[in-house]
Amino acid sequence: MLHRGPRPTRPPRFAPGDKGERRKGFHNGCFFAICGAGERSRLGSSSTNRSQLRNMKTDMTQQQAARADLDLPPLRSPASAAWDDLAEGISKSWMWSAMAMQDITMRYRGSVLGPFWLTISMAIMIAALGLIYSRLFNMEMHRYLPFLTVGLVVWQFVSQVMIDGCHTFLVVQNIIHQVRLPFSVHAWRNVCRNLIILAHNIVIVPLVIIPFGVPVGWNALEVIPALVLLAIDGSWLSILLGMLSARYRDVPPIVTNFVQVVFFITPIFWPPEALGVWAPYLPLNPLFAAIDVIRAPLLGEHPMPYSWSVLVITTVLGCVATFALFVKFRPRIAYWI
């Protein structure tokens, strides 16, 4: 039978999640209780008939009384289930780090240089671009090359996290359909893999900075909090883009396209000063902010005034928005892919 319009109302909710029970479940690691979370979103309250609801409630209490010996614990809220997913995912760091390593070693299996091909291809890119564009922009090599190197290395991480992030859940479709794992494991696998690649690329940075005598000071340590923020950004981007792409298959090409365009409109291979009076507005682009907070300290300069604030705000907003969507749509991911 096909019917249109809102479906009949769902059974009434149980009491909100009991904290003690939930913690126990999480530490145990083999203990789960799942509720129908996607329901509230699809059923308008407009269709809820009060007397109907009351009848259902009495039905439920009768049913529950009938099996008092086998009572279920109170239903967990979707938010606590989503939070547990993230926490359980983090606690399985051995799993996603091993998967990320596996991704890298598999990609370079059988090649002599292995993952150092990553380093070499980045070095070749930097050498080629550096040679031509330092002429084009009339900049001296000892200023342009370190600038370009740091920018490209950071950009490589940011852009690849976004592109791979679209496939966070899609590429592991057969795993998601066969075994239960926290969804966040796949996101952290993605971030971890790209951090490993970043570690391979970052060795080029001192090789360029030291010979050219860049005046690096103590503020180079700003790089550490900046990298932590980037890893957090990578996590929420992986979950957010992964969910969006699982639902809407048009998202991956859109993101790929977006990343390509942003590469040219962000000062990575061209100097920010070239923009003249517009230059102070550059940190409004969060991707520029992300590059600036790493690049400037490594070149012995200070990041632009708003770079840090823009990056922190982006991270906070991204985390909050992603968590809200994760709470709502996490139960649907397995159905979408």
Partner: peptide
Amino acid sequence: AGIFIPTRGQIYA
């Protein structure tokens, strides 16, 4: 197996 999260009702394992 906990792979599909039910759209309604409850599972406790």
